[in-house]
């Protein structure tokens, strides 16, 4: 059983009288621990796919099974719980809460999950250490560099130890070297067993993934797999 199974997914946006098929007849399955890059021209439906995978959006048709469970029919609260416990998001624009410190931003998912403050504290301290953010713990996002912000965001995405990390152009707002750092960070996480699905325009980054989903006009054009590098 694959970790993620999409079959016959349709996502249609209605704009006035016209309809946009953001996703069309999309079927794909992803195994646990895979490293997948989603690529394709602008408007091809990459973000729409990622939002669906992250349960932020519902398909108009088709089924989505996550870890064997049909998650499209779950109630909003059940979906929120799946997001909270199984999925980590990383965004192009970081999406840190500006008034909270780095440590508080990282602690957000733990707070939402109702984890007691003492445990929260140790887990956040560990994450700050793991991501080299210790000296920045009490800084607010505006006092951090882009790379540091994305590291805080990745720490936040992984603090609940999710099964899947969904990253939408995580290096899009970063310069080349910082972007590479972030890519390495995500790959390290993947190496520890977390499924990593990255939307990217960067062919270099895409080339590093062992599997590439090439999208166009809401369809899956190509599904390229490479043997794992020795």
């Amino acid at each position: 059983m694959a970790q993620i199974e999409l079959s016959g997914i349709e996502r249609i946006f209605k704009l006035g009288d016209s309809e946009v098929h953001a996703l069309h007849e999309l079927s794909v399955s992803i195994e646990c621990g895979e490293y997948v890059a989603v690529m394709g021209p602008s408007g091809s439906g990459k973000s729409t796919l990622l939002n669906l995978l992250g349960l932020l959006d519902r398909p108009n048709a088709g089924t989505y099974r996550l870890e064997g469970r049909d998650v499209t029919t779950l109630s909003p609260d059940e979906q929120a719980e799946v997001r909270r416990t199984r999925i980590g998001f990383v965004f192009q624009s970081f999406h840190l809460v500006p008034r909270l410190t780095a440590a508080e931003n990282i602690a957000l998912p733990l707070m939402l999950a109702g984890i007691p403050p003492a445990e929260r504290h140790t887990r956040v301290a560990q994450a700050l250490k793991d991501f080299g953010l210790e000296p920045r713990a009490s800084h607010r996002p505006e006092e951090l560099s882009g790379g540091q912000r994305q590291r805080v965001a990745i720490a936040r995405a992984t603090i609940m130890r999710p099964a899947v990390i969904l990253a939408d152009e995580p290096t899009g707002n970063l310069d080349r070297t910082t972007g590479q750092d972030v890519t390495h960070l995500l790959e390290e996480l993947n190496a520890s067993g977390v499924t990593l699905i990255v939307v990217t325009h960067d062919p270099v980054m895409g080339g590093r993934a062992r599997r590439r989903l090439m999208m166009e006009d809401g369809r899956l054009l190509q599904d390229v797999r490479e043997p794992a590098p020795a």
């Binding site: 992250g54 932020l56 909003p76 997001r83 909270r84 998001f89 999406h95 957000l108 998912p109 939402l112």
Partner: peptide
């Protein structure tokens, strides 16, 4: 708005 979207992505329920 963006913060609310983020909280939802992090698994906040409507009630939260």
């Amino acid at each position: 708005t963006a913060e609310i979207g983020l909280l939802k992505a992090l698994g906040a329920t409507g009630r939260n």
